[in-house]
Structures are given as structure tokens and as C-alpha cells.
Amino acid sequence: MAGSALRRLMAEYKQLTLNPPEGIIAGPINEENFFEWEALITGPEGTCFEGGVFPAKLIFPPDYPLSPPKMQFTCEMFHPNIYADGRVCISILHAPGDDPMGYESSAERWSPVQSVEKILLSVVSMLAEPNDESGANVDAAKMWREDRLEFERIAQKLVKKTLGIPI
């Protein structure tokens, strides 16, 4: 089982290294363990997260790609779809069975045809357009709806933090 997971992960790593999507890099933290990856995601242009480089950790299950990986930002985040501890809540990371809310169509869920690249691209679009219905961070969702200026201010603070620029 782990053998095929490993092979699949290596193939994906190769693909991501050879043809990296714009503003994204990802790979195993340590070549000894291909089941723990690190990814850097650049905040998309024209959004409040523009310019930031956000580090995240991806943990793959032994039966990958049957089950989806887990993704967690390792920097401070403030976003309606990201829990306070950095865990990302988007439909592509959920297997069709575990739909707690029942509003995610199975087309955008995890399936073995998805890939790390697709997850990361989904996260980029999530950063650009938060889904304020799935409230992973209720405060952030509320602020996004009601006080966009304050939300943008906080986002810019986070961007500067990831770049190591003093606020």
C-alpha cells in the first residue's frame, strides 16, 4: 500500500519540480519521509493576501491517493476557511463520505484523480475568494462580511510577517 503511495508522491514531486505552478513550490521536508511535505504559496495578486509567501505542511495518509492529505498552514493565518491552528478547510481536502455540512458537491471533493498541485491551486483561489459559509474561523468570516477594511489590514500584517518585514 505504502509502496504505491510513495510512487505516486514521487511522481507528483517530480511533476511539481519540473513544471512548478506560478507562485507555488512544494516538496518533502526530508527525503527520508515522502509523507510529510512542505509547501509555499504566494498570495494571489489583487487580493488582500497579495505578496505574502505562506508556508504550509501537508501530511499524506499511507493509503494516499485514496484518502486526501491534511493541510495546515504553519504561519499565523486569519481567513474564514482556515482554523486558528492553521488547518485548511476546503472541499477538495474532504473525501466524499465525510461531508459534515452536506453542501459540498462531490465534484469538488477529494478523489484519487486530484493531486497536490490541484489542492494547492484550490488553496490559492480560496485565499483570493474566501467562502464565508463554511466557518472554520467564525471571527474571520464575520469580519470578511462586515468590516472588509479591517480584514485587509490584518491580512497585510500577516503578509509582512511572512516576509519578515517589520510592521
Binding site: E38, G51, L163
Partner: peptide, 17 residues
């Protein structure tokens, strides 16, 4: 990978500045 990571952050930082 480590070098690419460092490079990406440095470039983003420069752009931001």
C-alpha cells in the same frame, strides 16, 4: 528544494519592498 524555498521568499520580499 530548500534553496528554491529561500529564493522564493527572498524574491517575494524584494517585490513587496
Amino acid at each position: 528544494f530548500q534553496e528554491r524555498k529561500a529564493k522564493m521568499i527572498a524574491e517575494a520580499r524584494e517585490r513587496y519592498i
